[in-house]
């Protein structure tokens, strides 16, 4: 009898794990839930430092930081050896988390409405949303480029604000540093490390 009870409990547990891991989250639901989590933190009554730490956790879970990191290197990523790639991944992650979370932390209680989604192909869906206007700033259109290769774990790869891509801006910023230093990746590492330590 006891064995039977354990057996059923085990089955239920296995079933729950299975359904959770195989659950395919719709990209628009994923965006809305991410936005809600961030909004909750931003409107909470905690210090700015604490908000930044909590936002970093959300970013690590929902953003494809490695993917964006290699995208922003452009053709230079092909010139890196394995050791440099590992180092870059590590530096970029720290840079991204600091930059992303401190940008977001400036907003207090942003209200974002998810409006629609457009599936580009199996790997990408664009989710359209609106940052609702306040008395200090106009309404802002935000598109989210969601990487959906693994539908149970969608990830953000880009934010397109009023038609301007953040990933593309980042890529061109890094290209500018690399181009003016003969493609020396160490100069980019230095610039990113300086930013992280500031």
């Amino acid at each position: 009898m006891k064995f039977r009870k354990y057996f059923f409990s085990f089955l239920i547990l296995m079933f729950s794990f299975y359904t959770v891991s195989s659950y395919s989250m719709a990209p628009d639901v994923f965006v809305q839930s991410t936005v809600n989590r961030a909004s909750q933190i931003l409107s909470s009554d905690i210090s700015k430092e604490m908000k930044i730490e909590k936002l970093k956790i959300i970013a690590e879970e929902t953003v494809d930081i490695n993917g964006i990191g290699f995208y922003t290197l452009g053709s230079y990523r092909k010139t890196l050896d394995e050791e440099q790639k590992e180092k870059y991944k590590n530096i970029f992650k720290n840079y991204f988390l600091k930059s992303f979370s401190s940008r977001l932390a400036e907003y207090s209680n942003p209200e974002i409405q998810v409006n629609s989604k457009e599936k580009l192909n199996e790997k990408y869906t664009i989710v359209s949303s609106t940052l609702v206007a306040t008395k200090d700033r106009p309404e802002v259109k935000i598109e989210w480029r969601i990487y959906t290769k693994n539908p149970s774990n969608p990830l953000i790869r880009d934010l397109i604000i009023e038609g301007l891509s953040l990933a593309r801006t980042q890529k061109e910023e890094f290209a500018s540093i690399l181009n003016s230093n003969d493609g020396n990746i160490l100069v980019l590492f230095d610039a990113l490390e300086k930013f992280i330590s500031n």
């Binding site: 580009l120 598109e143 990487y147 301007l164 593309r168």
Partner: peptide
């Protein structure tokens, strides 16, 4: 038009597989 959304070239992302 909303060109970034409509036509942003996927080839730059193509070989970056993180999943």
């Amino acid at each position: 038009s909303d060109i970034i959304v409509d036509t942003q070239d996927d080839s730059d992302w193509e070989e970056i597989e993180t999943q």
